[in-house]
Simulated assay, not measured.
Amino acid sequence: METQNYTNHRKYYPPHHFIFLPLLFFLEIFGIYKVFKDSEHELLWILFSVIIFLILYLAIMVRQHYALGLQNRLVRLEFKQRYFELFSKRSDEVEEKLNFSQIAALRFAYDDEFKELLYKALHENISGDEIKKSIKKWREDRNRI
């Protein structure tokens, strides 16, 4: 298995990303094409295109909404736990000063870099992307949605 790092840390679900969604995109383009080419059944193809668009929209938004909402809660909980383990105190005040992007990026750093990058995030306000790029030894997370 390839070592995870900044360039390869994104995750895809092949049936969804490479079969279902492309098929819906194809059907949507086909429906729009037929609207202009089949004037006899134009209304039917418009209805077809609208229905496919709604299915596509729902497929993207519902999946993302639930998965990312849950994932975000877990990332925050992981941050709280890790902060408590490293500093032996609650993270409420620190967490309020960070945006979610920064909190999410910090989970890829091992403990020694975590402390250093957390300090930079709090005092220099570096972005989540800058945090990820600053990590010298990447702590893998292969359990994301």
Rank of each mutant, 00 (worst) to 15 (best):
E113S: 12
E116D: 14
Y119M: 11
A109C: 15
F114Q: 07
I103L: 08
K120W: 14
R107K: 09
F100M: 07
E124F: 06
Y110T: 11
L122G: 06
S101D: 14
L98M: 04
N125D: 15
L117E: 03
E124N: 05
I103F: 08
Q102V: 08
G128P: 04
A105K: 00
N99E: 09
E130D: 03
I126S: 03
R107I: 05
I126Q: 10
A105W: 03
A121L: 09
D112I: 05
L122D: 08
Y110C: 12
D129K: 05
A104Q: 01
G128D: 02
I126W: 05
A121F: 08
I126E: 11
N99G: 00
D112N: 14
H123T: 13
S101K: 13
D112P: 05
G128K: 00
Y119Q: 13
F100S: 01
F100E: 06
G128W: 01
E130F: 00
L98C: 01
H123K: 08
D129H: 06
N125Q: 15
S127A: 00
N99W: 00
L122M: 12
E130M: 01
L122C: 05
Q102L: 10
Y110M: 12
D129T: 11
N125W: 02
I126K: 14
Y119H: 13
K120G: 05
F108G: 03
A104M: 01
I103D: 02
K115H: 14
A121Y: 04
Y110V: 05
R107Q: 12
L117A: 05
A104I: 02
F108M: 09
L122Q: 08
A105Q: 02
Q102C: 07
E130W: 00
L118T: 07
K115S: 15
N125E: 15
A105S: 08
F114M: 06
E113G: 13
A121M: 02
A121D: 00
D112E: 12
L98Y: 09
N99Q: 01
S101G: 14
R107V: 11
N99S: 00
A104F: 03
I103T: 06
F108Y: 15
R107T: 06
F100V: 01
A109K: 06
A105Y: 04
E116T: 15
K120Q: 11
D112G: 08
K115D: 15
L117P: 02
I103H: 00
A104L: 07
S127G: 04
A105H: 00
E124M: 04
R107Y: 09
N125C: 12
Q102W: 11
E116M: 11
K120D: 13
A104Y: 03
